[in-house]
Design a protein around this nucleic acid. Structure first.
Lengths: 113, 113
DNA sequence: AGCATATTTAACCCATCGGTTGATCTTTTC
DNA sequence: GAAAAGATCAACCGATGGGTTAAATATGCT
């Protein structure tokens, strides 16, 4: 029942922040670039990034005047594990995901980096 | 990025509510019994239960003057699946998974429940 | 040096949250 | 029928959340 879970779940409760995390899944990004697709101020995005950082979901690395944001997916693990305690559902129970795994297993090995 | 995830994650962001869910894992409970271990008012617990219900994490069934609370773990599934997309928890190639999803989107519509 | 770029801070607004107390409603029990 | 039990509602309170704009702080460029 730690405080960490509070921070992680609260951080994930906002759609803008979840969208940011999804973006960072693709690549590390500078704050300005993170803000670009959203129709809110840069200051608002900066706040969101602070919340994500405090939750441990991202890390920010300032190089020069640019602050790079990078995903820290490990932070989600504790929350994920907590939820697993309630399932009934397998970690990767998503139908599409299972189909994906099957195709991947018989597919081009180069795709499994 | 649905609204459902908002409600589920927000509901999970409170330690009292997570504790309630853990209690309900053991057994269905009446509101008064849910409230018993906590040092807050019954009204406060009632509010928590409303939030959990709206998030779909529990269901409340009134029988007589007693309202029984029961876990609905399925509601956690969407959130859990969302998080799985970020793991590391499973050694998967996310880029490949995304490409798979795209190819699937132009595939059989019956697969998209 | 001087200006532009990248990002945060400060001060504010309004809505929501978690909590309280006291009243209310329904159902059970005596 | 009256009292007790189970639960919610209503009104309130202080704190927090997500947003804004404007000012401040670095850093980079020429």
């Amino acid at each position: 029942m730690s405080d960490d879970l509070d921070l992680v779940f609260a951080a994930l409760a906002d759609p803008t922040r979840r969208a940011i995390l999804a973006m960072l899944l693709e690549d590390d990004m500078a704050v300005t670039d993170v803000a670009e697709p959203f129709s809110v101020s840069l200051a608002a995005i900066s706040k969101h990034l602070t919340i994500l950082t405090r939750a441990g979901l991202i890390a920010q690395d300032k190089r020069g005047r640019v602050k790079w944001c990078k995903l820290e997916p490990e932070a989600m693990k504790a929350a994920s594990v907590w939820m697993q305690g309630f399932g009934q559902f397998e970690p990767v129970n998503l139908d599409a995901f299972e189909r994906f795994l099957e195709t991947e297993l018989v597919g081009d090995p180069a795709d499994r980096s």
